[in-house]
Computed example of a mutant assay.
Amino acid sequence: MLLNKKISIFTFLKQIKFDIIAILIYAIVVGIADQYGFLSKIEIPIAVSAIIGTALSLLLAFRTAQAYERWWEARIIWGAIVNDSRTLIRQVKQFVPKKDADVVKEFAYRQIVWCYALGETLRKLSYSKKVYDYVKEHKIPKNNVPNSIMNQHGAALSKLDIGDFKQVQIDSTLSRLCDAMGKCERIKNTVFPKSYSLLVHFLIYVFATLLPFGLKDEYVLVEIFLTALIPIIFIAIERTAIILQDPFENVTTDIPMTTLATTIEINIKELIGDDDLPFQEKPKTFYIM
């Protein structure tokens, strides 16, 4: 997730470098040809470019809004995971008799691993040592590790002799965690319609193609500058939306699942009196993961 820090412009420009190169080459070639060459007689009313630019602006506005909505929904889900993880261990700690303190620790460590496993699964990364060791020790099926760990929570809950009412309360918390996991999987597995992306990208290049023939020809440098600048702005907006629309892709704009999982681990271990807390480094860059 991006932080409120200065971001290097070159980091973003690398995302659209090929589009920038293509548009710059086109702007220079067409600008010179339109000024001194065989294209000088071609004129297209600027109103045509204006109509396409207006339609393109509306499409990009919708695209950006939908992309941010997906990202924000993912952030809300992980905020709920943080809260429900704390609630789960607090409930278990309160409801389970003190003589069964080991049961509380089992729930706590299982929930910690679940948070890391969910983030790493969504990003399709190899499991960290903490998750790998737990999976190996407890012989957890690797098809869907977070779901298997949640099933262990349920099995352990069914064995607790704490009364039906208290079991229902804990089960309600587990259900919310399971619901959050399903929502993350839905966002991860639902791609933004490719046809919409192709339409927007196509219109940007149509706009860039027609634009120089509607501009005045007195100053070639001004024509080249405008022919390149306006389409590049549209490309930049489109790329911003593309980056935001997938919040679990292990890029700088991701939801900070690893950082949140570390926060959950610290909070849970403090709840159970475990002093072996992970060290959470302060961010050294403009983003956290």
Rank of each mutant, 00 (worst) to 15 (best):
residue 30 V to L: 09
residue 23 I to S: 06
residue 33 A to W: 05
residue 43 E to V: 10
residue 25 I to M: 10
residue 22 A to W: 12
residue 38 F to V: 13
residue 52 I to S: 00
residue 56 L to R: 00
residue 44 I to R: 02
residue 46 I to C: 02
residue 37 G to V: 10
residue 55 A to P: 02
residue 39 L to N: 08
residue 23 I to L: 14
residue 43 E to W: 07
residue 29 V to C: 04
residue 16 I to A: 01
residue 49 S to E: 00
residue 44 I to S: 03
residue 29 V to I: 15
residue 55 A to Q: 10
residue 39 L to E: 07
residue 42 I to M: 06
residue 44 I to V: 15
residue 15 Q to C: 05
residue 19 D to K: 15
residue 32 I to H: 04
residue 35 Q to K: 08
residue 52 I to Q: 01
residue 52 I to M: 01
residue 40 S to L: 10
residue 52 I to A: 02
residue 34 D to F: 05
residue 43 E to S: 15
residue 21 I to V: 15
residue 32 I to W: 05
residue 42 I to F: 13
residue 17 K to F: 11
residue 35 Q to T: 15
residue 57 S to H: 02
residue 18 F to A: 06
residue 47 A to S: 15
residue 17 K to C: 13
residue 53 G to K: 01
residue 17 K to P: 07
residue 43 E to G: 07
residue 19 D to H: 15
residue 23 I to H: 08
residue 17 K to Y: 13
residue 56 L to K: 00
residue 21 I to Q: 09
residue 20 I to R: 09
residue 27 A to H: 08
residue 36 Y to W: 12
residue 53 G to F: 01
residue 38 F to L: 09
residue 45 P to T: 07
residue 26 Y to M: 07
residue 25 I to H: 08
residue 36 Y to F: 14
residue 55 A to V: 12
residue 37 G to Q: 10
residue 37 G to F: 14
residue 53 G to E: 01
residue 20 I to P: 02
residue 41 K to F: 08
residue 39 L to V: 07
residue 59 L to M: 10
